[in-house]
Amino acid sequence: MPHKTFFWFFFPTGLAMILFIGLPIVSSFFQSLHIENQQILMEVENCDPFGCTTNVRVDVEATEKLKEQNPLGRFNGFGTYADRNHLAFDEIGEAWNTSSSTSEFKDIVLNLPFYKAMLFTLTFCFAVTPPVIILGFIVALSINTLAKSLKGLAIFGSILPMIVTPLIGSLVLFWMIDSQGIIGATIKILFNDPNLSLKSSSTLTWITLIIYGIWHNTPFAFIVFYAALQTVPQDPIEAALIDGASRFQRVRYIVIPHLYPVATFIMLICLMDNFRVFEPIIGFSAEGVAQSLSWMIYQDLRNENKMLFGSAGATSMLTIIGIAILLTPVLLRTWREFRTER
């Protein structure tokens, strides 16, 4: 296809992607270098019969004017990245100097907002992915042995957790697990502890979120494994059968090695998708004990009256760096696939 034809075919979609994916990233970066305008203070002298007092007050008019002149705020360089809510260099340095043991230092660092969110995000990613792969594989094996007439129904039932949006999925589970829901209330009666609830401890909330993550992601792993199972060559299996291999041995030594590349693909996609976790936190109302990087950005932006563009931009940039690190293996894989294709 000549360059010119290619250009016109590709132009609309390319323009859309550059305008609404490329530029926003640049704009996010630009925002992260700025910080909200300071309020302009003025001294006002109040005189009454008992004498005069001077008060400091916000000059609303001047502040508004400054905001109009400079809507993005003043230039701050990389200041926002280093502040307490992001990388917090000063706080970490101080903690390093004052804390007497490594565990104390760790405590202080992991209580800083950014590192706290980072810890949750990574824990979530790495706790959800392995069970998803194992469970997805077992479900795929099981459904593969079903009679044809039942397969369609079983597949439909299995993919439901994946096709609802995470917010709705987490709400549906939350309404059952909550202390007022069916499972939560039953557990309370079983353990005979009226105060036992999801929100009573942060560990419990984290576990609930991780269980939700497994519930939501398993269908994807199942579908991909299921499709891959159809491509397993039959000849080696037959040969193994003749040699007297048991069913378990056939799965262990023929099927699993064949599915190995598929499993790495699922793992990478899972890690990447779970790195942006934030809707479940809202669904489970777990903001108090579990914050993720994406949730921090959402929190900065949700208040219509005072959006913290600088802070949101800085967190976005740091999130993108995290995604880039996770993405590198996927990119290398695609790169290699393309090379061999050509």
Partner: peptide, 27 residues
């Protein structure tokens, strides 16, 4: 090939980071 790789990178961007870039220009 490079366009497809770029699309893959774009696909991995968390939507919330893009939204943080939209809001200010859209306002």
């Amino acid at each position: 090939f490079y366009i497809l790789i770029a699309a893959l990178i774009f696909r991995a961007m968390p939507h919330i980071t893009l939204v943080s870039g939209y809001l200010f220009p859209f306002f």
